[in-house]
């Protein structure tokens, strides 16, 4: 397989064909914030937080790095004035939905996002799809899925499957970036506090 050479934040990176910019950056230890990304799952491109600036033959574009495949001679900048501005805006919009998410608050501090900029519409879900995709792709149980669309879209468990599978699994709970479910919160607290079993994800 041909090696592809590209530059990320001034560093030369050799990547394989088919890798995404995010994977290439992670390979050399460059951090790009993500919410909806998970190594075990197909890239989804829902949160757009991994937005980076790419320059190809003099043309500048802003792309979601978790989806964009590496190209030869690509120049990637993971932080720039505009990238930061985009991320700040995305964070502010997400914070309207999940104002108390720890992950979001941390990122908001870094990017100077104001969590009160937009009217609260606290659904506590940012539609990252991690639980839905994890259940479908890794566990293949399909216990949780999206219903409805647009502003009314939300996650929903299928009671029949959930009753059988979810009690013994619950692996989607710690994935949630907003701790949308109260249960998820309790569960994470529990495993980090006293349980000898640490969940490795």
């Amino acid at each position: 397989m041909d090696e592809i050479l590209l530059t990320i934040d001034g560093k030369e990176v050799a990547a394989n064909e088919g890798m995404t910019i995010l994977e290439a950056a992670q390979k050399i230890g460059i951090y790009i914030p993500t919410l909806c990304h998970h190594e075990l799952l197909e890239p989804y491109g829902a949160c757009r937080l991994c937005m980076v600036e790419i320059e190809n033959r003099g043309r500048i574009q802003y792309v979601a790095s978790c989806l964009y495949p590496v190209e030869n001679n690509l120049v990637v900048r993971t932080r720039s004035e505009k990238v930061d501005k985009i991320r700040k805006m995305i964070l502010e919009l997400l914070l309207a939905h999940a104002p108390d998410s720890r992950d979001l608050k941390e990122l908001a501090e870094e990017y100077g996002a104001d969590r009160n900029r937009f009217d609260r519409e606290a659904s506590f879900c940012v539609h990252c799809g991690l639980c839905v995709r994890y259940c479908a792709e890794v566990k293949q149980k399909f216990a949780v899925g999206f219903v409805d669309r647009g502003t009314r879209r939300e996650i929903s468990f299928v009671p029949k499957i959930a009753a059988e599978e979810c009690w013994k699994c619950k692996e989607c709970f710690p994935l949630c970036p907003t701790e949308a479910l109260q249960a998820a919160y309790v569960y994470v607290q529990d495993i980090t506090a006293k349980s000898p079993f640490k969940l490795v994800l």
């Binding site: 479908a136 949780v144 899925g145 999206f146 219903v147």
Partner: peptide, 12 residues
């Protein structure tokens, strides 16, 4: 087809 997918489509 998983029930969640049908539910997703039927509500979409």
């Amino acid at each position: 087809v998983p029930f969640t997918r049908i539910q997703h489509i039927a509500t979409f």
